[in-house]
């Protein structure tokens, strides 16, 4: 199992807290992103003495909103480390009300980044399309503007119950798979093994027929639809002519 997401987040967190980044990725997933998982044997955390779990607890104790801001800023992949460092420092000294000071440029930048990430999460919560594979796994492909895989996975845990499912982020070659209540990560070429299967799917054909008829022709507004669901999201939407790429 790969730990890249957690490691990336911990490095980002260390930078934002002014602790310096770990030299090498040695930390196993911490549970903040993918639920409680044991540290891998021999993992020592950060050699510089940075304790990511402790940092997360501290941020949460200051304000859950601050922790959310840190996580979403990381997901945005927009950098903003200097702004985040400033906001963390100010919130530590002035309290969580600083997070509502929208006259502050750093607060505004981070709030905007968080809003973009939240919007992307909401969009893919609706637009991720799962296809059943012969092995019983439901798999979806996404290509998101932000690194939202870790936020999407828990959202689908309730939807799928005990049914195994996976989401593949083709843009980043990252994938997460959930089976029997545990989530595991894959990256690089390994994600290809989780791609949805191709071939006929009666439910998909029925969905296309439903979609073709449910709009009211007397109120047709393709511009409005394009605004609400921009074309870049159509690639994997079967109803918009896209579809899951066939797996191996």
């Amino acid at each position: 199992m790969k730990a890249s997401l957690s490691v990336e987040f911990e490095s980002f967190l260390a930078l934002a807290l002014g602790e310096g980044a770990p030299d090498s990725p040695q930390v196993a997933p911490q549970g903040e992103l993918f639920g409680p998982e044991p540290r891998s044997p021999g993992a020592q955390g950060c050699d510089l003495g940075f304790d990511p779990g402790g940092a997360v607890r501290e941020l949460r104790a200051i304000s859950p909103r601050l922790l959310d801001l840190v996580v979403k800023t990381w997901m945005s992949e927009e950098g903003l480390v200097d702004e985040l460092r400033l906001v963390i420092q100010e919130t530590r000294s002035r309290g969580s009300c600083f997070l509502e000071d929208y006259s502050n440029r750093a607060v505004r930048s981070l709030s905007s980044a968080r809003a973009r990430v939240d919007r992307e999460i909401d969009r893919f919560t609706g637009l991720a399309r799962f296809s059943p594979r012969r092995d019983g796994l439901y798999a979806a492909i996404i290509e998101s503007d932000h690194n939202i895989l870790s936020a999407l996975m828990p959202r689908f845990a309730l939807r799928f119950g005990a049914t195994p499912y996976a989401i593949v982020d083709m843009g980043r070659l990252l994938a997460a798979e959930r089976r029997a209540g545990r989530t595991s990560l894959r990256e690089g070429e390994e994600v290809l093994s989780l791609l949805p299967g191709g071939g006929a799917d009666e439910a998909r054909d029925l969905w296309r027929r439903y979609f073709g008829i449910i709009g009211n022709p007397g109120r047709a507004s393709p511009l409005l639809r394009r605004r609400l669901m921009p074309e870049r999201y159509w690639k994997y939407l079967s109803e918009m002519g896209g579809g899951a790429e066939p797996g191996p």
């Binding site: 909401d122 919560t125 609706g126 637009l127 309730l158 939807r159 799928f160 119950g161 005990a162 049914t163 979609f211 449910i214 709009g215 009211n216 022709p217 109120r219 047709a220 507004s221 393709p222 511009l223 409005l224 639809r225 605004r227 609400l228 669901m229 939407l237 109803e239 918009m240």
Partner: peptide
């Protein structure tokens, strides 16, 4: 609504749009 044991699905309090029809309405 929380999922039943062994079942599938749960309520999403803020609703989710799964697509948009030709008239621009959210399909949920």
């Amino acid at each position: 609504r929380r999922p039943r044991s062994g079942g599938i699905g749960a309520g999403a309090p803020s609703g989710v749009c799964h697509s948009f029809s030709g008239d621009g309405r959210c399909i949920s």
